[in-house]
């Protein structure tokens, strides 16, 4: 028995793969920005918010973390139209990824906030900073620094998970591979190449975020 692999018919379709990779990166970037915002807000709610808010954030986090992403995506894309909310594959994908990342980011950032030494908050208080100022200038930047590796890993998990968005015909990387194999029937080769591109994207995004974090998110000499 011989296995004949032929990557050439797939490689000539490289513009499709490139475009797919760009969409995957774009989806990830938007979900990262929005999801981190949700994560920060809900982490504050869980750590310092009033009781009803604390509870609501907890329910959100547990619901999302204990159900599969694909079910969340299908619920949004196939389920919500029955309730009169019709979404394009793009908005459904962004929404699902944002909600998903937001829940994990909440738990990750909360852990960083809870680890704040008491003296840091007291120092902020004795300098007459308001509660909001203390949260954003004293508590949050070191908290993000503490949990940055975990947050970066989670962002990459969400990016890899976004392969599922191809199933609702979002034209991201896995969808491109599917398209290519439907043209030339080289399914294995198409998926191998797409998988390698994912691997490259994962490495790239990790490097990028490890570079961005100390400079723009919790940097010392930069923004305060």
């Amino acid at each position: 028995m011989r296995i004949a692999l032929d990557f050439w018919p797939v490689l000539v379709q490289w513009p499709l793969l490139l475009e797919g990779a760009a969409w995957t990166l774009g989806l990830t970037a938007i979900a990262t920005l929005l999801g981190s915002g949700i994560g920060i807000a809900c982490a504050w709610a869980r750590a310092k918010g009033p009781r009803p808010l604390r509870w609501a954030a907890g329910v959100y986090v547990e619901l999302i973390r204990n159900t599969p992403f694909i079910v969340q995506l299908f619920f949004i894309f196939f389920g919500l139209p029955a309730a009169g909310i019709k979404l394009t594959p793009l908005t459904a994908s962004i929404l699902a990824m944002t909600i998903n990342l937001g829940a994990y980011a909440t738990e990750i950032i909360r852990a960083g906030i809870v680890a704040t030494p008491r003296g840091q908050i007291e120092a902020g208080e004795s300098l007459a900073l308001s509660r909001v100022q203390i949260f954003f200038h004293v508590v949050l930047p070191p908290a993000l620094k503490r949990v940055w590796p975990a947050l970066v890993s989670q962002i990459i998990i969400v990016m890899l998970g976004s392969a599922v968005c191809g199933q609702i015909s979002m034209e991201e990387l896995s969808h491109a591979a599917n398209l290519i194999q439907s043209r030339n029937f080289r399914a294995f080769e198409a998926y191998i190449l797409a998988t390698l591109v994912y691997l490259g994207l994962a490495v790239l995004v990790r490097r990028l975020l490890n570079w961005v974090g100390p400079r723009f998110v919790f940097g010392g000499r930069g923004g305060a």
Partner: peptide
């Protein structure tokens, strides 16, 4: 009222200069 703590409590993510300038800027 200024307060100096036993454990310093400098803000670890801010440079020395920014530690000093933070509260006058915000407050």
């Amino acid at each position: 009222v200024g307060m100096i703590f036993q454990s310093f409590n400098l803000f670890p993510h801010l440079s020395v200069g920014r530690n000093v300038m933070l509260a006058p800027r915000l407050v």
